[in-house]
């Protein structure tokens, strides 16, 4: 077993444990949520501990795509292309999960699965941009051109996302702001209490680890794919 494989295995075990701990904290560690007047809030809020980390990991994944795309254009090294392709694939799945968990939560609290609102629409735009990114990778056969063109799209696509957010913000917002000042709509909510923050941090760590593990497997897969392709070509 090579070093890389051993590292991947260790990382996946750590990730598994972290996910279990994070989920256990959700079910056994968190206190019951109470509203301002002391009534028991329903548990639908708990999906938030998935929703936020997944969203942040999706942003992280797309930032990795952006940075490695820029690195590829600068250096022309093949491994940066592998990295951005792998990260984009994982990012699209996470972006999709953000939409799913968000919709479930929205239906439980607002009563609709979907409303046209800045955060939601931005997440959708993000998802669509990187879906297009994957489609574009599929459409180019020649590996060198594919790497170059998708790197350009990776950069341009990433830049469109904050602008989407700003443009959509011209509409009214209903999404709760967890951090930072509210620049539109009402003031932000906040998380009070150590146990809640701890659970959130643990979930965040677990999801980042999950991303890292998946990324390692994806990169490994791409490398194997590459080897097969070279073998194929040499046999022709």
């Amino acid at each position: 077993m090579s070093d890389g494989q051993r590292n991947t295995r260790i990382l996946s075990i750590v990730t598994g444990v972290a996910m279990l701990v994070a989920m256990g904290m959700l079910f056994f560690y968190l206190p019951q949520m109470k509203g301002e007047s002391g009534q028991l809030l329903d548990n639908s809020f708990n999906i938030f501990y998935f929703h936020l980390p997944i969203a942040l990991v999706a942003y992280l994944a797309f930032t990795v795509v952006f940075l490695s795309s820029a690195q590829f254009l600068r250096s022309g090294e093949h491994r940066w292309d592998v990295l951005s392709a792998s990260s984009a694939q994982i990012g699209v799945i996470f972006a999709f999960l953000v939409l799913i968990t968000g919709s479930i939560w929205a239906n439980a609290t607002w009563g609709w699965y979907w409303i046209w609102e800045p955060r939601l629409t931005t997440s959708l735009a993000l998802f669509l941009v990187y879906l297009a990114y994957l489609l574009m990778r599929q459409a180019v056969d020649e590996p060198e051109a594919r790497a170059r063109l998708s790197a350009v799209f990776g950069i341009v696509g990433f830049l469109s996302v904050p602008l989407s957010f700003l443009s959509i913000r011209l509409w009214r917002s209903a999404h709760p702001l967890m951090f930072g000042d509210a620049t539109y709509g009402g003031a932000g909510g906040g998380l009070e209490g150590t146990s809640l923050q701890l659970t959130l941090v643990m979930n965040f760590i677990a999801f980042v680890l999950l991303y890292a593990t998946l990324l390692m497997y994806r990169v490994h897969n791409e490398q194997i794919q590459e080897k097969i392709n070279t073998k194929k070509r040499s046999m022709e």
Binding site: A125, V129, V156
Partner: peptide, 9 residues
């Protein structure tokens, strides 16, 4: 997807 920020405003 990229021209969403143009279309909306």
């Amino acid at each position: 997807p990229l021209v969403i920020p143009v279309i909306i405003p």
